[in-house]
């Protein structure tokens, strides 16, 4: 009896010793193929949120499921306009399933746009002081940035994360260089021409020190519009493209015959846009820059230009406000 028992123990050990190298090889393979990202012992704060059962489930192969559940809760919190909870649940979802790009993307969108709109919108007016509302909005932009930037560490080439990052940087930070980079990565993740590609170029056009690259990329865009079997008619050339390329043509003194051929009247566009302008309104930095660039291209005299001042900028445009 006892000898049989020893035999059983011996067999178990021998089998285990044979098994281990196999397991280690599988494990290494899975790790290399990103199957193990997010599989960690939950730290204290995470364990507290997950609960014992959740922590066990997270280790037991249910991370994806749990992440889904947390995203669902985040959606509910969003419906209740509880952005603190939105952020908390997305943090859990992204920690549990970091290779799922959608969580990072949505977290960035929720905190960077929805939460900011809420804090700066009518709903919180009177509820908090203006300074506090701006502060809350700025904090949630920072949170959104953290989400998106962390997400890029796990899925660097994701279209959604990069697009949201680009939008966030240009619209809530006034960071055109960073936005250009992010849109560039988003464009690289897609086949063929895309809007992301154009956003990359337009943002590059406002990035100091990148003027030459911006111009050469604009020229390539122009070739795409006018070249090929189906050249775009003039009225369908994007105006943003046109005033950017005109600006650089002027900046680099490009001879007339080498300039982009288009009969589109930027002056009419400027007049139309100018009619919508109101003193005392606040605008995003990119819109202000667009108007100023149009004025530059059209050689509008200083006295006739739109009187943009510091007060014309919305909060969170990279300024001090």
């Amino acid at each position: 009896m006892t000898s049989k028992r020893w035999l059983a123990v011996l067999l178990l050990i021998v089998f285990g010793a044979v098994r281990m190298p196999f397991e280690q090889r599988i494990e290494a393979g899975l790790k290399a193929a990103h199957f193990r990202e997010g599989v960690t012992v939950p730290d204290d704060s995470m364990r507290e949120q997950l609960g014992q059962l959740g922590a066990a489930a997270a280790l037991g192969g249910f991370r994806s499921f749990l992440a889904t559940m947390f995203e669902l809760q985040a959606t509910t919190a969003y419906a209740n306009k509880d952005y603190e909870k939105v952020s908390k649940h997305y943090l859990l979802a992204t920690q549990l399933h970091p290779r799922e790009a959608g969580y990072w993307e949505m977290a960035g969108w929720m905190m960077g746009f929805n939460a900011v709109a809420y804090y700066l919108g009518e709903e919180t007016e009177g509820k908090y002081s203006t300074a506090m509302r701006v502060n809350l909005a700025r904090k949630s932009v920072d949170e959104a940035l953290r989400f998106l930037e962390n997400g890029l560490r796990y899925v660097p080439n994701d279209y959604g994360i990069n697009r949201n990052l680009g939008n966030l940087l240009v619209r809530k930070k006034g960071d055109f260089c960073g936005a250009a980079e992010a849109f560039g990565r988003a464009a690289d993740s897609m086949d063929g021409p895309s809007l992301a590609q154009r956003h990359h170029v337009y943002n590059l056009a406002y990035c100091p020190g990148q003027e030459e690259e911006a111009y050469s990329k604009l020229k390539a865009l122009g070739k795409f519009f006018k070249g090929g079997p189906n050249p775009l008619p003039d009225e369908r050339i994007p105006p943003a493209f046109l005033f950017h390329i005109r600006y650089f043509e002027k900046l680099f003194d490009i001879p007339a015959e080498d300039r982009f051929k288009s009969l589109l009247d930027l002056g009419a566009l400027y007049e139309k846009l100018r009619r919508n302008f109101e003193v005392g309104q606040q605008y995003e930095k990119r819109h202000v820059l667009n108007m100023q660039r149009l004025e530059d291209v059209l050689d509008i005299p200083k006295s006739n230009r739109i009187p943009f001042g510091k007060k014309s900028l919305r909060p969170l445009q990279g300024g001090a406000n």
Partner: peptide, 10 residues
């Protein structure tokens, strides 16, 4: 070693 689901769903 059998935990493939999370990775495969992603």
């Amino acid at each position: 070693s059998f935990n493939l689901v999370d990775g495969i769903v992603a």
